[in-house]
Design a protein around this nucleic acid. Sequence first.
DNA 1: GATGAAACGTTGTGGTT
DNA 2: AACCACAACGTTTCATC
Lengths: 162, 162
Amino acid sequence: MLIKAKITTLKNLKTEIDRLNWGILQCLQENSRESFASIGRKVGLTPPAVAERVKKMEDLGIITGYFARVSHAMAGYQLKAIITLKAFMGKLKPFLEMVVTLDEVVNCYRITGNENIIMEVILRDQFHLEKFIDKLILYGETRTHIILSDVVADAPIKKRRG
Amino acid sequence: MLIKAKITTLKNLKTEIDRLNWGILQCLQENSRESFASIGRKVGLTPPAVAERVKKMEDLGIITGYFARVSHAMAGYQLKAIITLKAFMGKLKPFLEMVVTLDEVVNCYRITGNENIIMEVILRDQFHLEKFIDKLILYGETRTHIILSDVVADAPIKKRRG
DNA sequence: GATGAAACGTTGTGGTT
DNA sequence: AACCACAACGTTTCATC
């Protein structure tokens, strides 16, 4: 039964999320502090059933964490910026080790294209930005874009169509 | 006492976050489902005191929400990309209205510089990416960078150094 | 998955500094 | 104004089916 085994494996890899789990995910993406009892009432399950499904989704890596979002501005960071970096020869690896230590970096990705790195950073003011860029220019050529406003911010993931 | 009034106003605007609240924020940024009782044990407060402080931080807009993070790949989106858009004349406003309806867009910012918009998007595969870009080119000139890996992902905000 | 009971957490009142 | 103590209520977590 090689074919059947293969199908099972593919199913496991794809980890299909059923209708009820999408309901649970929708709730938790909107408010991760909602109780399992309250979610259960919405999706039509008892609290232990919700708890079990959530635990399974955590174990499978579907749910990767629960976090509170803190206002940057309220925490004293009035400026947000996108900075790209084109690393100098031999400087990408040292940069990758250094960047994880920087409090200002909220997100950092390796990307394809002319630049190697794109970062989302939070800063107190323009003086802070200037000092921050001074650190980066040891590793590569930077380009800075100030964020003027958020159009979409951490939108929840929806069931893919198809 | 105009001066004193002004100082009070500035203090309110800055909404200073004390040591205990930073402790609470650190907990909730790591695991927003942690109970107030458990947080209280860590920071040295009773559950009602934690609840009261959290409520106040929500009301002040310091805490802006609680969210579960869902794995893009596990939800069927195998590709992540950064796309910038340089809007055609008169096409920025229509774009801003349209972009909030797109399921693929996780984050979208208005930025300074040659491009007007930068987006973080999730996609099923390269065919999905192709179809997605086709929608954008009605509004402006795009540049696409595939995300190869996450170096820093949604890092918690830390107390700014005075 | 459901049920029911025990452990745990949350929330409101009242009292202290 | 911020916190604690206590009690009522809701939630989670087991066992069992």
